[in-house]
Amino acid sequence: MTDGEAVTDPTETRGSTIGSLPGRRRLVVVAVGSVFWTWLLARWAYHNTVLDWVATAFGTPDLVRAEQGVRGREGWIPAAPFEGAAEAVDGVAATLGPASALVDWLVWLFDLAAFATTTAPALAAGAFVTVYLTVVSMLLGLVIAVPLAVARIYGGRGLRSIALAYTELIRGTPLLAQLFFLYFGLPLAQIAESVGFTGQGPVPRAAAAVAVVGFTINSSAYQSEYIRSALQSVDPGQLTAARAVGLSELGGIRHVVLPQGLRFAIPGWTNEFVYLIKYSSLAAFITVPDLFRRARTIGSETFQFTDIYVIVGLFYLALVLTTALAMGRLERWVAIPGLGSASDRG
């Protein structure tokens, strides 16, 4: 440990979730992913309050149905064919006798598909919450993470220790405990509610605001670690050269070190994005109606726990894999020739 002050391992990074997807699998992800996202976006648009308002203003009040409660929404793909198929196969299975295990499995698959079509609208609503929690928290987290990383490297003694204490404290405790602290421990929810997070219309509920605060704080600590190690990998001669042309230290950091270092940080940053998609599911435990909570609710109403959790697992997989792929594209897009991306450096 070079700085001799880090409490937990300073290089702690979360392992890559997906890594590289080989050709064939990549195609599958792209194909399934685009269908999934087209459906998801259509679902969101169909129940979007703002779009409903616009559509109504243009005289087509039924085009967008924001007024429908999440539970009342119906799937676009009818469940009946799958149920029918399941029944038909089940009938076959009965005649097969003991050799029917494989067929039983097929029945379950059809039942699962039927269940998925009926629960999909509610899950789409949950996925919207999951996605906005993740995106908003990542971006707000980034706003905190950059100065935090700069403070860790270039700050004076006091600033450095504050930044270090912040990141170590956050990274040394579980996210769920942090959410409980913010939601149940602090009066944050009441404050959020009093400033207008009431859950009316497009405004998220207070719990969601608290979740955003929690995720922002948590991800800022992890993001700052990625950014810090990326900034430290920029040749110190770069800053010296910047100072030599007359830039101030801050100016040199801003115009020379950050533009290079932040590019190195992208692989870690995108990995963190994927992590937050997954960990945003913990918001369910502070009553945020995200993807996981929707699934949990459906589970306790139907007692089909396994089925709904398999379905929601696939939802998360789709979100995670498409994000990882899109981020890979972003990495190549912002790459500078001759400046290896951080993934080249192992």
């Binding site: 979730t17 996981f292 697992g313 998360y316 995670v320 894999l321």
Partner: peptide
């Protein structure tokens, strides 16, 4: 890929 791409809470339940 499946294990790494699924949230831990989903895996646990």
């Amino acid at each position: 890929v499946v294990l790494r791409g699924t949230p831990i809470v989903v895996l646990i339940v």
